[in-house]
Nucleic acid binder design. Sequence first.
DNA 1: AAGAGTCTCAACCGCTAGTTT
DNA 2: CAAACTAGCGGTTGAGACTCT
Length: 222
Amino acid sequence: MGRQPCCDKAGMRRGAWTAEEDQKLINFIINNGIHCWRLVPKLAGLMRCGKSCRLRWTNYLRPDLKREAISQAEESQIIQLHSRLGNRWSKIASHFPGRTDNEIKNHWNTRIKKRLNLLGLNPATHQLINPPNANPEMMIDRKQKEIGVSSEDNSGFEHRIWMPFESMNAGENRLQVDSSGGCSSSFSAQDSLCPSSSKDNTFPSSKATISLDDLFFYGNLL
DNA sequence: AAGAGTCTCAACCGCTAGTTT
DNA sequence: CAAACTAGCGGTTGAGACTCT
């Protein structure tokens, strides 16, 4: 013989919470703390199941929740964590005080995933969808001031950057890009999108490695 | 102005691991 | 030990907001 069910589903309210329900739940938790979600709706006078109360509190009513939009820095960190942890949203959310797993999951599904697709990357694996040179036509327009080129590259011209990807190591979150699509020897340069040695308007003059975060940033310009 | 299409995100569903009886 | 539960997780949905034509 097991325990009693958490609630009688018949007669339970569903759907959006009203301000009155929110206030009842807040008042109850402030006064009593959280001990057993099964008992919360009954003791708080709510016609909701305990599961619904828990979700409403953790995802929306908790006083320590951040209300502002997810920043660029947070987004970059989410991408890095996702490449290591996959869809383990609660693990990812634990790195962001004041953010919920639901919020991060929503942000991933509605924004990040879409942009990774646009970049020719599989959001699940962070790998190119059809390497090598999966997306040779992908092109990013840039203006010098938007990207912050090195002092040597101060032509001020608008650049067109062709980024045929050769390969990617998801573990290191780094991509190899090649201005010509060729696959010859590579060198590593964190700032290679704006090669300091290059004074002409072609990019890059030789193969370079950029971080996924950088690539993602450039993707925002699309 | 309005209807259609798209996006966002709160809430629900179903599942699992761990707990209780 | 088995059955039935709880809490928590990730996937999915759908109402409302927003944008486009």
